[in-house]
């Protein structure tokens, strides 16, 4: 049913900063502020209205949230002071936890499969490993292809000592505690609700 508020209420409660969506006055400033706006099918304000209109699938399956470069343009311009960037990140994360997003969505894949795994594996970013994982996520052939495209740059980075030739890095000392901490945080996250 259109404008059924159950989806909106879920988002208000569970998605990061989702309760702020109520406060959007649809001025459109955010829509004009996104650097990749040409690639958004729905602008932030439209997504917000879709939430209010109960369009659960359209919102959660959308790749729009994944087009956010975290430039924070919208956040400083919104006359209603909505934390738009965080709301957009929140919707992306909510789509991820609801398993609604296409697993092959490139940014989702990079952020979840590559980046998050990379940092939680040792406690810090291993840039060389990150790059390798990124390149080889579509298989060896594609990886070599992408590696070749960037060969000159990579060589340059190596030469100027800005890329570690050894892709494996050690774990931080407190890695055990670090992992337990993350596990606990994830557990609490499931119960977390927005304050409003």
């Amino acid at each position: 049913m259109a404008y059924d508020l159950s989806f909106a209420k879920d988002v208000y409660n569970k998605s990061e900063m989702g309760h702020w969506i109520k406060m959007c006055m649809q001025c459109g400033v955010c829509a004009g502020s996104c650097p990749l706006r040409a690639h958004w099918q729905h602008s932030p304000r439209q997504l917000f209205q879709m939430v209010r209109a109960g369009k659960r699938d359209e919102v959660l399956k959308s790749s729009d949230m994944w087009m956010c470069t975290s430039c924070y343009n919208c956040i400083v311009r919104c006359p209603r002071e909505l934390p738009i960037t965080h709301i957009i990140h929140g919707l992306a994360r909510y789509a991820e936890t609801e398993k609604a997003v296409d697993p092959m969505q490139p940014t989702r894949r990079f952020a979840v499969e590559v980046f998050w795994k990379n940092i939680t594996a040792t406690g810090r970013v291993g840039e060389a490993m990150l790059t390798m994982r990124l390149y080889f996520q579509d298989g060896i052939g594609a990886g070599i292809q992408r590696g070749l495209e960037m060969r000159d740059s990579a060589l340059g980075m190596l030469k100027t000592r800005r890329l570690n030739p050894i892709p494996f890095r050690g774990k931080i000392k407190g890695y055990d505690g670090f992992t337990k901490m993350l596990a606990k945080a994830a557990e609490l996250e499931a119960k977390l609700e927005n304050k409003a």
């Binding site: 992306a92 936890t97 970013v125 670090f178």
Partner: peptide
């Protein structure tokens, strides 16, 4: 023994609390 700040893209894999 600091660790990664989780950077701008960490939200997707980590959510808020992690």
């Amino acid at each position: 023994d600091w660790n990664c700040c989780s950077a701008s893209i960490g939200y997707a894999g980590g959510g808020q609390l992690p």
